[in-house]
Design a binder for these strands. Structure first.
Length: 288
DNA sequence: TGCGTTGTTTCACC
DNA sequence: CGGTGAAACAACGC
């Protein structure tokens, strides 16, 4: 799915278009999207106003005025697109064409608001979910996820806290960065970018990261996530991120030149995920 | 044709 | 119990 920057971009679009507006219609074409929802009848939301657009980790939280909330996860291929006449804002996976007709074959949910904006939720692979839950279920749901601090603002995570988490894990550092319970919001693209910025090989066992590298890695994570937010989320074409304003620097750029040292970026597999790094900037860690 | 793709959950196995 | 590795969910383009 969209990672934190893409979900944050979707949140901002929702905030700027339909927060404060009243829901006038909701059309759910693929009921599987509601498979985790305790409330199955979407019409209960009609007539209520959207109060805010929140985000925790990669989950969107949309509280309505009738004590109900929409919780949404875009997973690997979800997209939010807001439309009002000729105006359009889109975030998330771009399949098949953000400039084309909506709703289309993979637009599974559409919401209409009384200020003229329509929100279309599309999802090629259908891994995403959409829940309608009462107010008193929101915090328990989030608590159950046990998300770590937000990757775009790690001011609440001390170097000592992070070091303590890393010390308990023998798996590759990249795998730990993808664990939402350690830090929330990092995905495959930004894990590669953060490790390149910090000059750490992605397969380095987490418990063997040098103490001096830990604060550098914390800074690098925030840098990569905020770089992603600045460009409005990664731009995916044919399942590959394309560079916008020099970002990403290594992800999906196998065979190209490292922007730091000029060496050729290579691709490997770490924790079953495609992984890109620069062999010069990120040397294989020395044994023991 | 088979493989890989911005994520998370579950399960078997230590 | 807790950590780890792999499969599963599914559709599409190369």
């Amino acid at each position: 799915m969209p990672e934190l920057p893409e979900v944050e971009t979707a949140r901002r679009i929702i905030e700027q278009t339909v927060v404060g507006a009243r829901l006038t219609s909701i059309d759910i074409r693929l009921t599987k999207m509601l498979r985790l929802s305790p409330i199955q009848d979407p019409s209960v939301l009609i007539g209520a106003s959207l109060l805010a657009a929140r985000r925790r980790a990669k989950v969107l939280i949309l509280p309505f005025s009738n004590d109900l909330n929409v919780l949404m996860h875009l997973k690997l291929s979800g997209q939010v697109s807001a439309h009002r006449q000729s105006e359009r804002h889109t975030a998330g996976h771009p399949y098949p064409d953000p400039l084309g007709e909506y709703p289309h074959r993979t637009t599974h949910i559409s919401l209409g608001f009384d200020n003229g904006w329509d929100l279309h939720i599309s999802d090629l692979r259908q891994f995403g979910w959409f829940q309608i839950v009462p107010d008193d279920a929101v915090e328990p749901f989030l608590a159950e996820q046990a998300f770590g601090p937000e990757a775009n603002d790690l001011s609440t995570m001390s170097v000592a806290d992070f070091a303590a988490r890393l010390a308990k894990r023998s798996v590759p550092i990249k795998t730990v960065l993808l664990d939402q319970k350690v830090i929330a919001g990092i995905g495959n693209i930004y894990a590669d970018e953060a490790l390149h910025k910090a000059k750490i090989h992605p397969a380095t066992p987490a418990n063997r990261i040098e103490t001096s590298q830990i604060p550098i890695l914390l800074d690098a994570i925030q840098w990569s996530i905020n770089a992603g937010i600045e460009i409005g989320g990664a731009k995916i074409v044919n399942n590959k991120a394309t560079m916008v304003n020099g970002f990403p620097e290594v992800h999906a750029r196998v065979g190209e030149a490292c922007p730091v040292c000029g060496d050729t970026i290579v691709k490997t597999r770490v924790g079953q995920r495609g992984t890109y790094y620069c062999p010069t900037c990120q040397p294989v860690p020395s044994p023991t």
